[in-house]
Design a protein around this nucleic acid. Structure first.
Lengths: 159, 159
DNA sequence: GGGCAGCGGCTGCGCCAGGCAGTGACTGCG
DNA sequence: CGCAGTCACTGCCTGGCGCAGCCGCTGCCC
């Protein structure tokens, strides 16, 4: 790896936390405009991404308890974001389905960022796009795993 | 733009919200391990990035009111993350300074993600790194501006 | 140079998202 | 057929944050 590449990599690693922070803030602003909590919005993304439709699994991915997820679902139904449906195979379970009702509103709120992303991506060639996409998808799973196994630093404190 | 490039761009745009969500969750997990709120951690990143040292400006960047930031600062001082210092030029103001005390602990908690990012970036060439870095930095400012000017959708609701 | 509008940070109060722990319904294994 | 485990749900409580009012300080402006 060449020196300037190392510099670029360092700069990117430093830019990452701030990027995440500000983007999360943007999501919070969108959620507020929709009179909805950021967690509800995050859940909506998971639902539309087809990641899962199981309450327990969704709660885990969202980082909340199943108890909190019950109220979360209550609110999402109230806000016409999703709905409960019985699971025919297991009467204890239920499946969560996203509702299309407020998608237009959501798209409008995301418009500024969508435009930015679109313009930015249009300037990249195939290799650059592949790198970016790979970084995002692998980073997602890495973050989910890392969040579940954050190293215990008790010994650092106690030492 | 070729068809497969368009597909890649679309995929990247879809992967972005989930990436942000899961990464934010990882940050929340790190914050919890440090017995600290995610907002405190976000503020710490801003301080170490040298973005600003003004309470009002930091509150704006964090998306909280100045009132909430006062308690936030109280907690950060309590947790040895930052400290208040008087502004010699203006006795109304104060300067927020990050403390190095718990940086080792923080680095250890970030280690898994840092390793992933490092390995992932090492595989990219100069053009790819430049594209990624540009996307992150420009995306940060775009998100901050977009968060401040989220379009009003009242007419959508009322219609 | 004295009054005054505006700014910067601090505080009482209430709200609400979420954790915790216990409950009931249901499943499937022994 | 009973029993342990799973899944979603519910009171109770904590705590971060918004809101609005407050005080001290600054700098403009007559």
């Amino acid at each position: 790896m060449l020196p300037d590449q190392r510099e670029l990599a360092t700069a990117a690693a430093l830019a990452l936390p701030r990027f995440v922070g500000s983007t999360a803030l943007f999501h919070a602003a969108v959620a507020e405009r929709m009179a909805v909590t950021p967690t509800e919005l995050h859940c909506l993304h998971l639902l539309h991404g087809g990641v899962s439709d199981s309450p327990t699994e969704l709660a885990r991915l969202l980082g909340v308890t199943t108890g909190a997820f019950t109220r979360l679902l209550d609110r999402m139904e109230l806000h016409r974001l999703a709905e409960r449906a019985p699971d025919p195979a297991d009467r204890r379970r239920l499946v969560v389905r996203p509702l299309p009702d407020r998608m237009a509103e959501l798209a409008e709120l995301y418009a500024p960022m969508a435009r930015f992303v679109g313009e930015r991506l249009a300037r990249l060639d195939r290799r650059q796009l592949t790198a970016l996409l790979g970084f995002l998808t692998d980073g997602t799973t890495a973050a989910e795993q890392a969040a579940a196994h954050v190293p215990d630093v008790t010994h650092v404190i106690s030492s």
